[in-house]
Design a protein around this nucleic acid. Structure first.
Lengths: 339, 339
DNA sequence: CTGAAAGCGCTTACAG
DNA sequence: CTGAAAGCGCTTACAG
């Protein structure tokens, strides 16, 4: 077992050994022996040598020459968030099958971080991007598109920017969840959302609004600030508990995974019984939901499918087909005991 | 807004514009103007041009020339597992600060997948590896080390392989957890572990064994097969509930995150009360633990610190210092209501 | 059908 | 102090 990095065999090594030019070896390597009309017996010899000498193409050299790196940049809100980590897992697996490698970054919904991540990835010359765009900072996404890089947005999209996206049918999911609460007899239904201009949140709010309006019920919405989550959630719980407050509720619909968790922690602190004192519908499956005192009814997003579609579309774009895809996927309402 | 990828400025563009050689530009770019004794006023001119023309070095070209890619390969068991996803998050952030990019893969404790991931990463010419080694397939780890690539193993290590690692003090953590159960008066303490030769599991089992032995209690261990988890957990619950079985228990200590979850699902199905009918200590923090009917007492691993240490050591190795580090971190026992 | 050669964009010994 | 040039390992027009 000798230590030290052994030098890899290059195309030239193969060519020299066989006394042919590197061009021929390259053609065979890339399956162009037909188009380039390489002699039949020489093809065989080259294949053998490639095999015997254990040749592995130098990816970097190829990238420099081709301007393609077979690498994809993925920017999510936070890879430690289970919704995104399982989506990432799925994207990596699918990308791998197609010969692509993924580099991941977490933006924390922050413009500067997003920008920096895009710069790094651009610098690394990724072939395309899958991005969960953060609120209010679309310059980098626009840049990506204007520079001609393939981009697929997931989870949310930027309406002004004409490019691909794969999202949940957010309106439908929210509408359905709230209607379910209505069908269960709840009259004072509140929604806990994020304060943001992002379309997915607007859509979820629209679904809620439409549903309560159709049922002739009052609207009770809290828009939590992403970076003052704790304070705003606290204020929210004070209001919804107060029988005299217009925002007093008998049921709560949470608009995301994180909000659901934050809300439940608070509900637990206050020792409120779910669903007796307040009914709950959550967003995104999550093991914690299963173990909640009343296993949570929730809106299940098809995270894996979202990832799969995103990578499929992106690779299509990278490798040719120009047409833009807008995909919106259906949710599933998982019924359990929290309402 | 013109579409289409605009050509990036190259070193040569700068050199041509200024009428100097690329060598000088390169020296200035890399802060070698002193060593290479570049003329003072030309340095200024070059700096200006670099700035003005918005020069960004071509990473690929640099990598081809240097044989360094500023990229790190990270292989975990499953990036969708919260323990690994938060560690990965931390590794990415730290790596970014040091100018490195990370590519991640999930091995699923599977040798073939691990092997394939290492091949891909080797092919991508990563500068070093952080790996959670899978059981029984150490050839690729040995290969990495023998080829002279820096490697840091995390979570577990391979005793036969002389290289860096960062792990939990698994013996200590387990010993402590079981002693806590003993101090709470439990007499029939069972441990649920994985069937594997991996050192971290052996150490956790050893901690348990030592603790029950010292207390004069009987040993009750289940070794669950990773790929028959459900069946084995089911069998386990049948045995531990049976008062006539030698493996009947009043308390259970789970050796991992996943095992804890799988065990609790089953305990819930059987409608067993925790801690009244069976006390529980889990492993790794997890939001689900917080929401369990009895918030779980658990062994908290310093996952973030593990990630930070791993990347620190790896970068040290990549950039020079040769000495091997073995780090074992302390756990924290988080006391709550499950025992 | 095949080879010699240019070039992707850098870095770095070498000569002056 | 500076420039010309080689070379990292590929791919691909071009000439024959």
């Amino acid at each position: 077992m000798s230590k030290g990095r052994s030098k890899r065999v290059s195309l030239k090594d193969i060519a020299n050994k066989l006394g042919v030019s590197t061009a021929l070896v390259s053609y065979v390597l890339n399956g162009q022996e037909k188009e380039k009309r390489v002699g039949a017996e020489i093809v065989i010899k080259i294949r053998q040598a490639l095999e015997e000498m254990n040749y592995v193409p130098n990816h970097i050299a190829r990238s420099l020459r081709n301007g393609k790196t077979q690498t994809i940049g993925l920017i999510v809100t936070d890879i430690a968030n289970p919704f995104f980590s399982s989506m990432a897992r799925c994207i990596e697996d699918e990308a791998g099958k197609k010969g692509y490698t993924v580099i991941i970054g977490s933006s924390d919904e922050n413009c500067n971080k997003s920008r920096r991540l895009v710069d790094t990835m651009l610098n690394r010359q990724v072939d395309g991007f899958i991005i969960v765009p953060a609120d209010g900072c679309y310059d980098y996404a626009t840049l990506i598109v204007n520079e001609g890089f393939p981009l697929v947005m997931v989870d949310r999209y930027i309406p002004e920017l004409s490019t691909n996206y794969v999202v949940l049918d957010n309106f439908g999911a929210s509408y359905d969840a709230v209607n379910y609460l209505i069908s269960r007899g709840y009259k004072k239904i509140g929604m806990v959302a994020y304060k943001t201009n992002l379309i997915h949140m607007k859509e979820r709010i629209r679904g809620y609004t439409e549903a309560v309006k159709n049922a002739g019920l009052g609207k009770r919405i809290w828009e939590i600030r992403y970076d003052h989550q704790k304070d705003d959630i606290k204020k929210m719980t004070q209001q919804f508990q107060d029988k005299n407050n217009v925002k007093n509720v008998d049921a709560l619909f949470f608009a995301t995974n994180t909000l659901t968790m934050a809300g439940l922690y608070r509900v637990n602190e206050l020792k409120l019984q779910v669903p007796e004192e307040v009914a709950v519908i959550g967003f995104d499956g999550n093991e914690a939901f299963d173990f909640y005192s009343a296993p949570l009814t929730y809106v299940k997003q098809p995270g894996n499918e979202m990832g799969k579609e995103a990578i499929r579309i992106l690779v299509e774009q990278i490798e040719g087909s120009g047409k833009i895809s807008h995909i919106s996927l259906a949710h599933q309402l998982i019924l359990r005991n929290s309402c």
